[in-house]
Amino acid sequence: MRLGKKWIAGLLALILIVSIVAGGCAATQSNQDTADKENSQQVTEFKPLSTTGKKVVAEYNGGKVTEGELNRYINIIAFLDPQLGLMMSSMKDKQNQLRAELAKEYAARQYMVSKVKDDPKYDKEADQTMSDIENGLKNAPQAEGSKAPKNLADAIKGKGFTKEELQQFFVDYHKVNEYYDEQMKGDKYDWVKAAHILIAVGDGQNQQPKRSDADAKKRAEEVEKKLAAGGDFAKLAKQYSDDPGSKDNGGVIEGSVDQFVPEFSKACKTLPLNTVSDPVKTSYGYHIIKVLDRQQKPIADAPDDVKAQKREEIYNNLVKSDLKFKSLLPA
């Protein structure tokens, strides 16, 4: 059962790491013979790893990671996201690489925790998170013939960690959030509000118009001329735009300027306010753009995807500079 909580999405930023490693397996997987493919259809259940090992598997600035600590971390992750657990158990040829990346993520996590002062609020936040998980487990739909766990203790039985260890995991999780928040304090991001009319290039499939590049450019230039002659942007957007998400609201879109494709993003950064652009070509087709507003806003108020991008930047900088991580696992 997968827990679809927003905080889990933040917690499991390391899914990106697993995805990258998994991507490296894609070519190998595609070359398996028929028998291997038939066997691969049988889902390999994640088996909890032993947490008794005292061997040091990694070192970092201010601490060490033992085999038992790493395995416990992996066990908890696999419990919180069973699909991720299945992925990890199926990546036999990438186990060492994956474990090294997870050890690095765990070391970075512990380093961040060491920089945050203890406070009873983290215990309270962890209690709430544990309660949320327990309620989610009880209320989640169950497979035929299976019963919902009586409580959280019942759910984690045999999963490779105790309830107290899971509690500490979430105390640390909330401390890591605090670390990121402190690092981002005062930071801003580039926000833009713009109106656009998209003239798409397409082959007529998947609700795309059937239109060549040349025809799209010609149509975009036609729209540009109508705007130059005093045409109403909102009315022309409704009439011409192939962007279903904005054509009925004047073509208006807003958000982080970096969320858009590069050519569109560049136009939003450089175009004078309330000036209609020449047709801007992107992978979608041709855009007529008018920037309505442009600001730097506090990243604390930013959408989750913008914060996640900033967190990734902080994490990468930490790994490159202060963490001094060294894996002792086999290559």
Rank of each mutant, 00 (worst) to 15 (best):
E105A: 14
A22T: 07
E165L: 04
G160T: 05
T129D: 13
A35D: 08
Y111F: 15
D322C: 10
T270Q: 13
K290G: 03
R211P: 12
R109N: 11
A27H: 14
E182F: 01
D305M: 04
G230Y: 05
H174T: 05
I314L: 13
D305C: 05
E313M: 15
D242Q: 05
T270E: 15
A148L: 14
Y315G: 09
F79I: 02
Q32N: 06
N206H: 13
P141S: 11
A195V: 06
K218R: 11
Y315K: 13
N139A: 13
L198K: 05
Q259T: 09
G250C: 06
F79A: 08
A155S: 14
K210Q: 15
D243K: 08
R99V: 04
F79E: 00
E263N: 11
N96Q: 10
E59F: 03
W7T: 05
Y73T: 08
I20S: 13
A234P: 12
Q83C: 02
D93F: 12
T270W: 09
G10H: 10
A58R: 09
I8D: 03
A100R: 02
T28K: 08
K47Q: 10
K185W: 01
D190F: 11
T275P: 01
K54H: 03
G186S: 04
Q295C: 00
K235Q: 09
V252K: 07
I314H: 02
Q205P: 01
E69R: 11
V291A: 11
N71Y: 10
L137V: 13
D258E: 13
L323T: 05
K104M: 14
D203P: 01
A300Y: 01
D172W: 01
A143H: 11
S40K: 10
D305E: 08
A155W: 13
V176P: 00
Q183F: 03
L328Q: 09
P272T: 01
S283E: 15
I20E: 14
D118K: 15
D258T: 09
S19C: 09
Y240N: 08
T52N: 14
